[in-house]
Computed example of a mutant assay.
Amino acid sequence: IDRRLYPAEFCSKLDFMDYVWVQYAFYDEGYMHGVLAIKTSFRESMGMYAETLPSALEHLSKAYKITQKRLDGPKAASDAAIAGVTILAIYQLVHGHVETGLVHFAGLCRMIQLRGGLAKLMKHNRKSDGDSKHVVLTEYRIDLEFALQSGLPLRFGAAEVPVNSNTIKTRLISPTHTKLYEHGGNAELICILSDATAFTNLLNTTDEASRLDPLDFSEQAFSLIHRLIDFAPLHLSRPTNLTENLLQLALLAIMTNSLPNYTTDARRYELLAKELKKAIQRQVAFTNVHWKLLLWAVFVARVSIFHETQDERIMPTIMNICQNLDIDSWVQIRQVLGGYCWLHVTHDTGAIEIWEKVKAMEEVHKQ
């Protein structure tokens, strides 16, 4: 499961027997039933869609009963109580029950407030620094997930979780980013793009000897996603500037690949996919198109949150963009993608597949 939570290509292996959330399952019955409710929601090992199976409901019922009893007692804001509500919120996320999950999360936020907030919870946690950071990053990550799925603003502030600034290299504003700014891009958003590019560049050069600590990886990824959602939540007023709108959505799409995921259910980001699809369509119809940005955004969408069933609609768009840029090879495509935020290890294969489909379509049109 650690390979799902922390990508093996970029992260060192985590000893799950020392992982605080696993330890809870050994000594807290309510949390254990919550974990089992998630595990038994899958007919196969943590990779298919979650189902509401009888065995899962049995464990879920026990988890609710034990957690509610604890919440009604004097230890309603204890570590164990927070863990119990956390696993119930994760269960709802896994099943796509966002509204129910938000109810749990609202209660969880109140419990954390009673403990002084995320930062204080980590600082004064009685466990080791690593364990306390695991706890806080999990709550932080759940906040991001609910914001992405519901479109609502984040509940925790960016300053709640300290980020290790030594993980990524110093921000560098490249010529590509400067052109975006000249094209009407927001300065704050360009800075996020530059930081995200520095992060992905670091990951692109990671090898077996230089893999990141899982916590450092999570801190950086979560911080970037937090800044992007803060810039413009998905369900509220969207940026009127078409370049800003497309850039923010594409960055969110590519960064979602860094979020821990228990299933292969891509439907959890339907709202983001819908907004990105509209942004691409508007950019195509725009009189002053930023073609390279659009090319990058379309490929990002395809390798992250779009489904293969949308390929027939995407391919003509890619053909049109490439004609305007006078591009006719994967080498040229890769050069454009590399100028933005792109993960070669995880994204090149999917991008090459769609490019080969585009070339095949071109051959058919020539006949």
Rank of each mutant, 00 (worst) to 15 (best):
Y24S: 03
Y24H: 11
A25R: 06
A25S: 13
A25Y: 05
F26E: 15
F26A: 12
F26Q: 15
F26W: 12
F26P: 04
Y27M: 06
Y27P: 04
Y27N: 14
Y27L: 07
D28L: 07
E29C: 07
E29L: 12
E29V: 12
E29D: 12
G30Y: 01
G30P: 02
Y31G: 00
M32E: 01
M32G: 01
H33V: 01
H33F: 06
H33E: 06
H33C: 07
G34N: 05
G34A: 07
V35F: 12
V35K: 09
L36N: 05
L36F: 07
L36G: 01
A37G: 09
I38D: 02
I38Q: 08
I38R: 09
I38V: 13
K39C: 13
K39P: 04
K39H: 14
K39F: 13
K39E: 15
K39L: 13
S41R: 06
S41A: 10
S41E: 05
F42M: 07
E44W: 10
E44A: 11
S45H: 11
S45E: 14
S45L: 13
M46S: 10
M46Q: 10
M46T: 12
M46D: 10
M46W: 15
G47L: 08
M48Y: 12
Y49L: 15
Y49V: 09
A50H: 03
E51T: 08
E51C: 10
E51R: 15
T52W: 07
T52A: 10
T52L: 13
T52K: 14
T52E: 15
T52Y: 06
L53E: 06
L53Q: 09
P54K: 00
P54N: 02
P54R: 01
P54G: 00
S55C: 03
A56N: 01
A56S: 12
L57K: 09
E58L: 04
H59R: 02
H59G: 02
H59N: 08
L60C: 01
L60E: 00
L60S: 03
S61K: 09
S61M: 08
S61H: 09
K62F: 01
K62R: 09
A63Q: 00
A63N: 00
Y64S: 01
K65M: 09
K65D: 08
I66N: 06
I66T: 12
I66Q: 10
Q68V: 09
Q68E: 15
K69C: 08
K69R: 11
K69N: 14
L71W: 02
D72M: 14
